[in-house]
Design a binder for these strands. Structure first.
Length: 134
RNA sequence: GCAGCCGGCCGGAUGACCGCCGCUGCCGGUAACCGCGGGCAACCGCGAAGUGCCGGCAGGGGAGGAAAGUCCGAACUCCGCAGAGCAGUGCGCCGGGUAACACCCGGGCGGGGCAACCCGACGGAAAGUGGCACAGAAAAUAUACCGCCCGCCUUCGCCCUCGGCUCUCUGAGCCUCGGGCUUCGGCGGGGCAAGCCCAUGACAGGGGGCGCGCGCACGGAGCCGAGGGCUCCCGCGAGCGGCCCCCCUCUCAGGGUUUACCCCGCCGCAGCGCGGAGCCCGGAGGGCGGAGCGCGAAGGUGGGUAAGGGUGAAAUGGUGCGGUAAGAGCGCACCGCGCCGCUGGCAACAGCGGUGGCAGGCCAAACCCCGCACGGAGCAAGACCAAAUAGGGAGGCGAUUGGCGCCUCGGCGUCGCAAGACGCCGGGGACGGCCAGGGAGGGCGGCUCGCCCAAGGCUUCCGGGUAGGUUGCUCGAUCCCGUCAGCAAUGACGGGGCUAGAGGAAUGGUCAUCCCGCCGAAGCGCGCGGGCCGCAAGGCCCGCGUGCGAAGGCGGACAGAAUUCGGCUUACAGGCCGACUGCGGCG
RNA sequence: GUCCCCGUCGUCCAGAGGCCCAGGACGCGGCCCUUUCAAGGCUGAAACACGGGUUCGAAUCCCGUCGGGGACG
């Protein structure tokens, strides 16, 4: 029943190779609370990966950051096939949830401004894949 | 009531919406490898299997006391291993508990606290090696040194001078007072190379603070003296000294301080007695006096001694009496220590008695010795399944000719004592080692021709094995309750329960209400002090402290399982329960 | 997760029970030299990660924290 806000295993990014691919050829946007990598994919649904490094804090803080980011993804899930990797910053831990939602929306959709979902730096052309939401 | 001490426990609650991960049941969809059968084959059917996977619904479960640090100990897994030892590491009072431990319990000993109680790496220093700065005679050998005592040897000044005495009298000798020289020692003052400190204010003095140290000292006066020490006074139930910081004299300074060295001044030391002969005077007798003797001092030397020696973190048992030439556990008493015996205790150890005569400093978290334990790695251990790509092995298909190279055998030649090496010729063999030819096949193409690529080909199987997946993975030295044994740790028995299993890693997100703590105006209560009124009881006002206190605000810790247990260590807001100790109050 | 290693001036090192209130080089401050700068000379400031313990005495030896780095078919 609850499918709209669910977060299924298929929506996790798990493989190391997926992460490196998104780091290399996805678009990258910095915010005050987090950094977001976005890359388009062939899948019918979006996927999420979280990279909480030890720099963020001890295990309690890292787990809390991941839970809040997952919650963001559940409530603001893009309908298109996008691979998203979020790198949380320390400021994310104490920020109000509403400010997280605002920043997450902006960072995910900002991938547009400098052209379609495309690797800005590595120029390895991924063909323009019309996405309505920009 | 306050302060303390020990043990145990909890570690926010409830609800709403949206979610996550296992398990169980039901419902819907749906495979594959593989096996069997059929078919020329593509493939089909059956089994595997309605399993696994995907989705839905329902039920039930889902972080900790430290999950942390990874400091110990184990289980488990793989590797290694005849046995024993060495090395290395860890542990170290005794007894018990345990699967094991560096953990726990009980006891002993030592230390701290008024006490409850707390703390302790707590074997061995006559097995050996080594270290102990500075100071000090000496830092481990009980010797040397200083000193004390005994014996022996040598020596016991010089110059000037007041005064005196004697004589053989412009002089000589002797005694005495004072001074000087020389040598040594002590005390005081001054100078100053150099070092250090100081405008961030030195130094000195005074006051205050803090911690550490010593403890009847500090200060004052005197005495003995070889080293070095002793006595008295003041003070006295507590202080004193050193270091550091702050303040004041003080915005005062080219100054202060220490040691070495130099100079100056002061003090101290440098024989006395008896005495035959002799000489002189003489009444007795007296004076001088060589040698000698005794005592004393200085130096040297031979011995005795371990009492004492400013030091130091530490000094060779302590105190007292006797004893001695001086001394000494040399003797005695007490204390300490070692050994032996008895008693109590399983033991560590304790008590008592006897005995020895001191038997030898500290450091083993210095090397080490003794006793005990330990094979190594770690769930990224290990096991199973197994893409793509590359590579390995075996087979099949296709072309299989020549040359070079390779292997082997034979002959000849050169070198060599030989073994053998090198070269040439010939026979045989293998080969995807190289080159050329050949061309199965492939590409362009509807087909042929043609062109291009081309033995680094196509294909089957096998083994290792990467990504990935499955497993190991949660029923266990398990948890709860009770009984029994035990002082306890713990164990035995009985009953009951199943209590997270993720894997880029779940156990939550957002909000509401409540709970707890802190702040908190007005107001109220209590205590203390002051003022006013009142004869008094008391009342009023002011100030301070304290308790209760609405709305509201702030806060609710430390921290997230990763193979699993037993410990240790570290972090932690707030709260609850119980035992005990000290002090105060009331009865 | 499992297992190792290391912490000394601002930086890189030395020191290995007392000679160390810790030494050297570079860097930093001041003075001298120079017309000036550099070089050179003189000089100064500056550190034992933290907390306990052993010892007469600890940067050094032991224990525990904290921080940093590394390895993992």
């Amino acid at each position: 029943m609850g499918g709209a806000h669910a977060f299924r295993p298929a929506e996790h990014i798990r493989k190391r190779s997926d992460y490196t691919r998104i780091y290399d050829s996805g678009s990258k946007n910095h915010g005050r609370l987090m950094t977001v990598f976005v890359q388009a994919s062939e899948r019918p649904h979006a996927r999420l990966g979280i990279a909480a490094t030890r720099k963020l804090g001890p295990a309690v803080d890292r787990n809390r950051a991941k839970r809040r980011v997952r919650e963001l993804f559940r409530h603001h899930k893009p309908d298109a096939g996008l691979d998203i990797v979020v790198v949380p910053r320390r400021e994310l831990l104490d920020a109000p949830f509403a400010s997280l939602e605002a920043e997450f929306r902006v960072l995910v959709e900002r991938r547009g401004p400098r052209g379609a979902p495309r690797a800005p730096r590595h120029g390895r052309s991924s063909r323009p894949r019309a996405h309505s939401g920009v």
